[in-house]
Deep mutational scan, measured.
Amino acid sequence: KTVKFDGLQFDFDNPEKALKFALEVAKQKGAEVHIHGDEIKIE
């Protein structure tokens, strides 16, 4: 899975870790997590 935000991109082999990371970043930024297939966007 790939996590994208602020023009940055982070690749994870483990989908659970990717989602956990995305949710943590979103919480800190006050943003929402959007999942599109293998891509997780924080907006």
Rank of each mutant, 00 (worst) to 15 (best):
K1C: 15
K1Y: 14
K1N: 09
K1Q: 09
K1R: 12
K1P: 10
K1W: 15
K1F: 14
K1A: 13
T2G: 04
T2Q: 05
T2A: 04
T2Y: 07
T2M: 06
T2H: 06
T2K: 08
T2D: 01
T2W: 05
V3N: 01
V3T: 03
V3A: 01
V3K: 04
V3R: 02
V3D: 02
V3G: 03
V3E: 04
K4Q: 07
K4L: 12
K4V: 12
K4D: 04
K4C: 15
K4Y: 13
K4E: 06
F5N: 04
F5Y: 11
F5A: 02
F5H: 04
F5S: 01
F5D: 03
F5L: 06
F5C: 15
F5Q: 04
F5W: 07
F5G: 04
F5K: 03
D6T: 00
D6L: 08
D6N: 10
D6Y: 07
D6A: 07
D6E: 08
D6P: 04
D6M: 10
D6G: 09
G7D: 07
G7R: 04
G7K: 04
G7L: 03
G7S: 06
L8H: 06
L8C: 15
L8D: 04
L8F: 10
L8W: 06
L8S: 03
L8G: 02
L8Q: 08
L8E: 06
L8R: 03
L8T: 04
Q9A: 09
Q9M: 08
Q9N: 06
Q9I: 13
Q9V: 13
Q9H: 08
Q9E: 10
F10W: 12
F10L: 05
F10A: 01
F10P: 01
F10Q: 03
F10N: 01
F10R: 01
F10I: 09
F10H: 01
F10V: 05
D11Y: 15
D11R: 08
D11N: 10
D11S: 09
D11L: 12
D11W: 15
D11F: 14
D11C: 15
D11H: 14
D11K: 10
D11Q: 11
D11A: 09
F12H: 01
F12A: 02
F12N: 01
F12Y: 02
F12L: 04
F12Q: 01
D13I: 07
D13F: 03
D13N: 03
D13E: 10
D13Y: 04
D13P: 05
D13T: 06
D13L: 07
D13G: 03
D13Q: 06
N14I: 04
N14Y: 00
N14H: 06
N14K: 01
N14L: 05
N14C: 15
N14E: 09
N14M: 05
N14Q: 05
N14T: 12
P15F: 15
P15H: 11
P15E: 12
P15N: 09
P15C: 15
P15R: 09
P15Q: 09
P15G: 10
P15T: 12
E16A: 06
E16C: 15
E16P: 00
E16H: 05
E16G: 03
E16R: 03
E16N: 04
E16T: 07
E16I: 09
E16S: 05
E16W: 07
K17R: 08
K17I: 12
K17W: 12
K17P: 03
K17F: 10
K17A: 14
K17G: 11
K17M: 13
K17D: 15
A18M: 02
A18Y: 05
A18W: 09
A18R: 01
A18K: 08
A18S: 02
A18G: 05
A18E: 09
A18I: 01
L19G: 00
L19E: 07
L19H: 01
L19C: 14
L19F: 05
L19I: 06
L19W: 08
L19S: 01
L19T: 00
K20V: 05
K20F: 05
K20Y: 07
K20R: 10
K20H: 10
K20G: 04
K20N: 09
K20M: 11
K20E: 14
K20Q: 13
K20P: 00
K20T: 03
K20A: 12
F21T: 15
F21S: 15
F21V: 14
F21P: 15
F21H: 14
F21A: 14
F21D: 15
F21C: 15
F21K: 14
F21G: 15
F21R: 14
A22N: 00
A22W: 11
A22E: 12
A22L: 08
A22I: 04
A22F: 07
A22G: 03
L23F: 12
L23K: 10
L23H: 12
L23I: 12
L23W: 12
L23Q: 13
L23S: 11
L23T: 13
L23C: 15
E24W: 06
E24K: 01
E24L: 00
E24R: 00
E24T: 01
E24A: 08
E24S: 04
E24V: 00
E24G: 01
E24D: 08
V25C: 15
V25K: 00
V25W: 04
V25E: 07
V25H: 00
V25Q: 05
V25L: 13
A26Y: 00
A26T: 02
A26I: 04
A26R: 00
A26C: 14
A26N: 00
A26M: 04
A26F: 00
A26G: 01
A26V: 03
K27H: 10
K27S: 09
K27D: 07
K27V: 08
K27G: 08
K27Q: 11
K27R: 11
K27M: 12
K27N: 08
Q28C: 15
Q28R: 11
Q28G: 06
Q28H: 08
Q28L: 11
Q28K: 10
Q28I: 11
Q28Y: 04
Q28S: 10
Q28A: 12
Q28M: 10
K29T: 13
K29G: 07
K29V: 13
K29I: 14
K29H: 14
K29F: 14
K29Y: 13
K29P: 02
K29A: 10
G30Q: 08
G30D: 07
G30L: 07
G30N: 10
G30V: 05
G30A: 06
G30M: 07
G30I: 05
G30T: 04
G30Y: 05
G30E: 06
G30P: 02
G30F: 05
A31Y: 13
A31Q: 07
A31E: 05
A31C: 15
A31W: 14
E32K: 13
E32S: 13
E32Y: 13
E32H: 14
E32L: 13
E32F: 13
E32T: 13
E32R: 13
E32I: 13
E32A: 12
E32C: 15
V33P: 02
V33Q: 00
V33I: 12
V33T: 00
V33H: 00
V33G: 03
V33A: 03
V33K: 02
V33M: 06
V33N: 02
H34V: 12
H34T: 10
H34E: 07
H34S: 09
H34F: 11
H34C: 15
H34Q: 07
H34A: 07
H34P: 01
H34R: 10
H34N: 06
H34M: 10
I35R: 03
I35E: 04
I35N: 00
I35A: 03
I35W: 11
I35V: 09
I35T: 05
I35M: 10
I35C: 15
I35G: 02
I35K: 03
H36V: 12
H36C: 15
H36T: 11
H36K: 09
H36N: 12
H36I: 12
G37K: 09
G37R: 07
G37C: 15
G37H: 05
G37P: 07
G37Q: 08
G37F: 10
G37W: 10
G37D: 09
G37N: 09
G37V: 08
G37L: 08
G37E: 07
D38L: 09
D38I: 11
D38G: 11
D38E: 08
D38M: 11
D38Q: 10
D38W: 09
D38R: 10
D38F: 09
D38H: 10
D38Y: 08
E39Y: 11
E39R: 03
E39F: 10
E39I: 14
E39L: 13
E39N: 06
E39C: 15
E39G: 05
E39T: 12
E39V: 14
E39P: 01
E39H: 08
I40L: 08
I40P: 02
I40E: 01
I40N: 01
I40T: 04
I40V: 04
I40R: 02
I40S: 03
I40A: 05
I40C: 10
I40M: 03
I40D: 01
K41Q: 11
K41V: 14
K41C: 15
K41A: 11
K41R: 14
I42R: 01
I42K: 03
I42F: 06
I42S: 03
I42A: 02
I42V: 08
I42L: 07
E43I: 14
E43M: 11
E43D: 08
E43C: 15
E43S: 11
E43Q: 09
E43V: 13
E43W: 09
E43T: 11
